[in-house]
Design a protein around this nucleic acid. Sequence first.
DNA 1: GTAGCTGCAAATGGTTTGCACGCGG
DNA 2: CCGCGTGCAAACCATTTGCAGCTAC
Lengths: 140, 140
Amino acid sequence: MHDPKDLKNAGLKATLPRLKILELFENSEQRHLSAEDIYKIMITNGEDVGLATVYRVLTQFEQAGLLVRHHFESGKAVFEMNEGTHHDHIVCIKCGRVEEFYDEEIEKRQKAAAEKYGFSMQDHSLTIYGTCTKTSCNES
Amino acid sequence: MHDPKDLKNAGLKATLPRLKILELFENSEQRHLSAEDIYKIMITNGEDVGLATVYRVLTQFEQAGLLVRHHFESGKAVFEMNEGTHHDHIVCIKCGRVEEFYDEEIEKRQKAAAEKYGFSMQDHSLTIYGTCTKTSCNES
DNA sequence: GTAGCTGCAAATGGTTTGCACGCGG
DNA sequence: CCGCGTGCAAACCATTTGCAGCTAC
């Protein structure tokens, strides 16, 4: 899973902070984590890490294609594992819940619109914002 | 167009900075402007305005429904006039060019996806990121 | 052993806020 | 005239960067 192999391939040394961060993404129940989230979890776990390192590692992982960065309107970036499967997101602007989905037709039409206007599309996912309708949306 | 009426309706006094900023959005060839953009233009035009005021006015206008705020990945927010017509955006991540489009089918499918996951959709526009393919994309 | 990493602290960039003055109604 | 609105400076918050010591290989 998170072999030092992945890091080697990216030209990165297999250091403690890097391995721990990869591990976090694999074991956390939350797929989408911010730098601050990760930093706090690591400090809680007793790791001696700096916030700057977390930011540096996340950026390196993004460039290496291990993670994908999203912005989600909140003012802070969140990251998720890059499993190669493109998908879009729906985000609750009240409680922050994130769901993922994929719609072939939307993809086709996005691409068509991009080409029509002379753009080469990036693999940037669509994000829909809304509010949870079901139940427990009692945000801070 | 930019009658003090709009401002009155929003419970805002028709002050110089507010009128000038509205005017800017109506007369500028760029539909999408950041706070910094607006500030610089006004200073250049000889207005004695503060950046803080620009931010405050933009936020008020957004709340009054006169403007819409977007984030576009760049780290800085941009605003456009709210003409009531919902549309999506394609943004060049190299040169910043913005095009607008609308696709009925995408809208339908977005809404369907949102409902499927228990969300009530906001009128938040889809943003596609890509790079200009045609020609003059020589960014700073 | 050495280049690449790290933690810390300071710097940055966008945005917000506190405050005393000043203009709009 | 009264209070909302303003400019200025300082505060904030996410993120980046400079630097001296440390570590993986």
